[in-house]
Simulated scan of single mutants.
Amino acid sequence: DLYPLICYLPRYATDASIKPDPEDSLPLWDNVTHSRAPVVPPFGVDSLKNESETPNGPQRRGTIFQPEQALPRVSTDVPLLPARIPPRTTFYDYLPIFLFFKPILTIFRGTRYTEDRRDGAGRKKAARPVESNVPLEISLFLSSYTAWLLKEDLVKPAIATALINTLTVLQDTVANLDRVRTTPIPFAYQAHLRTTMWIYLFLLPFQIYASFKYLTIPATAFASFLLMGFLEIGQEIENPFNYDLNDLDLDAFCLTIERELAEITAHSASDPSSFLFNSFNQPFAPTDRRNVEEILADSKHAYHLPDSGMMHVQRTLLGCWREIDEVTRHKAR
């Protein structure tokens, strides 16, 4: 969903009107198979034929949500994946207690679950290398644009300083989020905790058999469910940026920012005189409920006295404080 917003930048530009030539391919698209005909995504970046189709199968009617419709429509000679590719919903998502048998089924079926993010020992698999860090590259172009504004004297130095500081905070935030995503729980801690847990659960039936008798099996299963849940919780909080139910909904955050930016840019910065001096502004309410026009028109009021005008304004503000303090405090009957 980001491509239509950055497709005009030099690193990501792909001209669909020109016949693709491998000799002219940018480094980012070097290993990508170019289409002979331009691919025009229906809503920004989704190049799938059916609106309800995803790489993991079709979506059910009524569950389709495509915020890409609000993005510019661009054409590219490079086939693009959808903006959101959640993992396929499986049987284990509905009954996670059967995850214990998943490695055994894998051995008998002779297949590997490519969507698993951990190996058999519970260690986090290394992420696939990424050709480029898109957020940092966007911040590079933003810094270049800020430098150009300064060079052309289009912004004041103080405003440019605020822009540069904001870009620095943005880069630090991206680096911190990436550090959270790529920093695993130490394997020695995981291995020690798992080994201790399995040894305890293996010996638990022999410890409680004399007291529980035939209830030993369900009691052991219940204890295993509780204790193994703590291990799963530790793995869940290791990376909060996936599509699990407990992960952060970054898509919702980004869509909220998109809506707020659109709302901000839709309202121009008006002259303060156009909204300060009108009939709706009552600056001294609740003590003085006259609007600005009435206050300015009453030239004989104490506010307009050359020597004591500010004293009367301060007296009115103190009255506002007393009245607000009395009204907003809840008094027990």
Rank of each mutant, 00 (worst) to 15 (best):
Y8D: 12
E23H: 02
D24K: 02
L26N: 00
D30M: 11
R36E: 14
P41M: 03
S47Q: 06
L48G: 05
E53F: 11
E53R: 11
N56F: 13
R61V: 15
T63A: 13
Q66I: 06
Q66W: 02
V74L: 13
S75N: 05
T76M: 11
D77C: 13
T89A: 10
T89D: 09
I97D: 12
F100D: 10
F108W: 13
T114C: 05
T114K: 12
R118K: 08
P135I: 06
F141D: 14
S143L: 10
S144R: 14
W148C: 14
K151D: 12
D153R: 14
P157E: 12
A160T: 11
I164T: 08
L167R: 06
L170T: 02
Q171G: 06
Q171A: 10
A175N: 09
D178S: 07
V180A: 04
T183A: 06
Y189K: 09
T196I: 09
M197R: 07
I199Y: 13
F202P: 00
F206N: 11
F206W: 14
A210M: 08
F212N: 08
K213P: 05
Y214F: 07
T216W: 02
P218N: 06
A219C: 14
S224R: 05
S224K: 01
F225E: 13
E238F: 03
F241I: 08
Y243T: 05
N246D: 09
D251C: 03
F253Y: 06
C254F: 01
C254G: 04
I257D: 12
E258N: 05
E260S: 12
A262V: 10
A266K: 13
S270W: 02
D271L: 09
S274P: 04
L276G: 04
N278Y: 09
P283L: 06
D288C: 08
R289V: 07
N291W: 02
E294W: 06
L296W: 01
H304V: 03
L305E: 12
G309D: 04
M311W: 11
